[in-house]
């Protein structure tokens, strides 16, 4: 590890966000956790991230790493109102990523990570995820990363398959049973294991990744284009 990092985790109120926070803190990094609403153990609360970011940076930073956590809740596109919500969520997320990148571009060797939910496991598990948000942000990240690389910011994503903690153990067991021949290979990954992987990336200086979407999982789902 080159040095201790100051990390902001946006939307940390998820099993992976909390595991990452713990993992980073135990490794000696400075971690600030954010959520949209008050939660035990969360440092800062707020919805207007683009306007609050510099304030948080003054109070807890300056941050060198910003992680956008997984978000719970299924996207549905059954009605025009659903479409409006997805659109609103995308516009808001774009604004938040933009503000984060702008802030880190004033520093050397910034990293922004966006965690996206892989959704093809839905065929076996009732995981709350749909591909609209993740596919949209893949397009956004691959594009914006090309624009901001020259400012010293590496913007990347992890495309994360469902985590053990996201579903009851019984549901995982049912999925393994239903898959029969594949059952032996079908084991959920734990949040802490993904957190350790991301911590290792966060600790790297001059990471050779920009505009990349890294698949994280056991390899069973296949949601490629």
């Amino acid at each position: 590890m080159d040095k201790k990092q100051r990390v902001l985790i946006v939307d940390a109120d998820h099993s992976l966000g909390l595991a990452l926070s713990k993992e980073l803190a135990e490794a000696g990094h400075s971690v600030t956790t954010h959520a949209r609403k008050s939660e035990p153990g969360i440092d800062i609360v707020g919805n207007d991230i683009p306007n609050e970011l510099l304030k948080w940076d003054s109070a807890y930073g300056p941050f060198e790493r910003i992680v956008f956590g997984l978000q719970d809740g299924a996207e549905v596109a059954e009605t025009p109102e659903d479409i409006g919500k997805i659109q609103h969520d995308l516009a808001r997320t774009l604004g938040e990523i933009k503000a984060s990148v702008q802030m880190l571009s004033r520093r050397d060797d910034g990293q922004v990570w966006v965690l996206l939910q892989e959704d093809s496991m839905q065929y076996y598990l009732p995981v709350a995820a749909q591909p609209m948000r993740s596919r949209a942000l893949v397009g956004a990240i691959k594009s914006l990363a090309k624009e901001v690389f020259c400012f010293g910011v590496k913007l990347n994503a992890l495309h994360v398959q469902p985590l053990a903690e996201q579903l009851d153990a019984a549901l995982w067991k049912d999925a393994r049973t239903n898959l029969k021949a594949f059952a032996i290979k079908f084991r959920p990954q734990k949040s802490i294991d993904v957190a350790k992987f991301l911590r290792a990336l966060i600790e790297l200086k001059g990471i050779p990744l920009a505009g990349m979407v890294l698949p994280v999982g056991i390899g069973y789902p296949e949601n490629n284009v």
């Binding site: 774009l94 591909p131 948000r133 596919r135 949209a136 397009g139 956004a140 594009s143 090309k146 624009e147």
Partner: peptide
């Protein structure tokens, strides 16, 4: 590059 919003919207359509 230069087409962030366009790429986002088209990625959303892929999803």
């Amino acid at each position: 590059e230069g087409q962030v919003s366009y790429a986002t919207s088209k990625g959303a359509l892929v999803g």
